[in-house]
């Protein structure tokens, strides 16, 4: 079996090729062919798929973090995290030792929300025109509305008297949406990381 045939048949290689799109476009453009070739060589040399993916998973995580936090968008995320830290610090001194559970819940949703939007934008591409932007915001709004309805339908508020906004699940979910929206705006203002020399 020739290498080219084997490469075509390898699911791992196809998955790796897909994951390469998480890197900045300029970096992928420069190194895609070589990285795929190296992956194929690693796959040939490593009998254990688990060990191979352990190495690749670690490599992807570390190199993506470096690429991301060196970019303008990455610096925006750092500044957002610092802002959260300041909010917690102010809360710590003003409202006793806990800055208040609502904030923690919202923060718990905010981070994965940002990450989810970043990955989605990286893999699916940025909306290019006004109608696509409205479409994305519409989707976010629809998901939020659906979640509210769902929470009521499953009887999350059996008492009926609890204001919905105080519900922890809703606070987390609200944070998630705010995180997504924040990242959506940031990617339009700062753009996605473009090349590795920014990292």
């Amino acid at each position: 079996m020739t290498r080219s045939v084997r490469q075509k048949e390898s699911r791992s290689l196809r998955l790796y090729a897909w994951l390469l799109d998480l890197y900045p476009p300029a970096f992928v453009q420069r190194h895609r062919a070589e990285m795929l070739q190296n992956f194929a060589d690693l796959e040939d040399a490593e009998p254990s798929k688990a060990k191979l993916w352990l190495l690749i998973g670690k490599d992807l995580t570390m190199s993506l973090i470096l690429q991301f936090f060196g970019s303008r968008l990455g610096r925006y995320v750092i500044s957002v995290l610092v802002a959260w830290l300041l909010i917690f610090t102010v809360g710590y001194f003003r409202r006793d030792s806990t800055p208040g559970y609502p904030l923690l819940h919202v923060f718990g949703g905010f981070l994965p929300g940002m990450l989810a939007m970043y990955i989605a934008t990286r893999l699916l591409g940025m909306p290019q025109n006004k109608s696509q932007i409205i479409y994305v915001i519409g989707i976010l709004g629809a998901v939020a509305g659906f979640a509210w309805i769902l929470l009521f339908l499953i009887g999350y508020f059996p008492g009926g008297g609890t204001p919905a906004v105080r519900n922890p699940a809703l606070q987390v979910f609200g944070g998630f949406l705010i995180g997504m929206l924040s990242m959506f705006i940031a990617t339009h203002v700062y753009g996605m990381p473009q090349n590795s020399s920014q990292a």
Binding site: Y23, F27, R30, M35, I56, D59, M62, S63, L66, Q67
Partner: peptide, 9 residues
């Protein structure tokens, strides 16, 4: 043990 992402970065 270096992976492709770390190496090319």
């Amino acid at each position: 043990k270096m992976g492709p992402g770390t190496l090319y970065g």
